[in-house]
Nucleic acid binder design. Structure first.
Lengths: 150, 150
DNA sequence: GGACAATAGTCCTTGTTAGAACTATTTTCC
DNA sequence: GGAAAATAGTTCTAACAAGGACTATTGTCC
């Protein structure tokens, strides 16, 4: 019974996200970054930097992965680590001047690249979509919680 | 101008998909498979097997990655390779008897696990969501094509 | 019918991913 | 104020991911 209901929604969700990823990733790679690297640079843009912990929770990149991504960005001179003044365990990550330059060069153009697709939906369609996606997300998060509690 | 329009939709899409992935992956891993392995087993279930090429295009796993995933499933005895009778270059992948058993044990229960989340949306909400996701996907695919053509 | 382009899989490299073990620091609480 | 719990990052392992080089076949077309 559940199959006929569940599969089409999940399939469209997965296909739509994968279409987004394919378009987005291809554009990002053309600009010389990997998708997680772009995510980090975009998150750090227009901020004074932030702790690993916060950067990870904003980008949904787990700490073990984040170390490596930040290492590669640091090796390219786009970000730097600094000791936190408040907490000796914590490390602040921030864009270098070169990182700021890349951010400016890459962030808005990427949104501009995606805009035509999003704007092809009518205004009310975008609002609908946002609302339904939020509902489904909340329901899925509840399933995760229930699984974790078992 | 584009930023205020584009970001919220993309954010909800990404968050919803990631919530799906988190829930789905956690459940799949509990059943002893990785997500790509589940994808392969689910795709091969109720079929006589198929070529690498087709399996890759159905699961959106690229050939280089697929070799490794199939290797690991074969090592666990869930799938097997067979020469194609039609084309000497082609290899057929199919479930073993054990793979069929795992498919039956894992596929429907996974849908049943996801069902409560999807069914928390009203019927009309699901239809709406599917429609909007399809529209957005088509527009995103167009962006990919336009990028590739440049 | 034989050179030559196209195709199917494998292998390799670089990067991402989660999660667990580990170290160093901080917080909590008796 | 000191032991114990919690927390922040790093390191490690196994797996996935894309894409390009490579091998073996098959198809094409003069």
């Amino acid at each position: 019974m559940s199959r006929a209901t569940v599969v089409p929604v999940i399939r469209e969700l997965a296909r739509c996200y994968q279409a987004f990823e394919r378009a987005s990733d291809a554009h990002i790679r053309r600009m010389g970054l990997t998708p997680p690297q772009f995510d980090i640079v975009a998150t750090l843009g227009n901020t004074p930097g932030m702790a690993f912990k916060e950067l990870g929770s904003r980008t949904l990149i787990t700490k073990g992965t984040l170390t490596g991504v930040v290492d590669r960005l640091a090796a390219r001179g786009l970000v730097e680590r600094a000791a936190s003044p408040d907490d000796g365990r914590s490390t602040i990550v921030r864009l270098t001047a070169e990182g700021e330059r890349v951010f400016r060069e890459v962030f808005e153009p990427h949104l501009a690249f995606l805009a035509p697709a999003v704007e092809s939906l009518p205004e009310c369609g975008r609002k609908d979509l946002e609302k339904r996606l939020r509902q489904l997300r909340e329901a899925l998060e509840k399933r995760s919680d229930e699984l974790a509690r078992q």
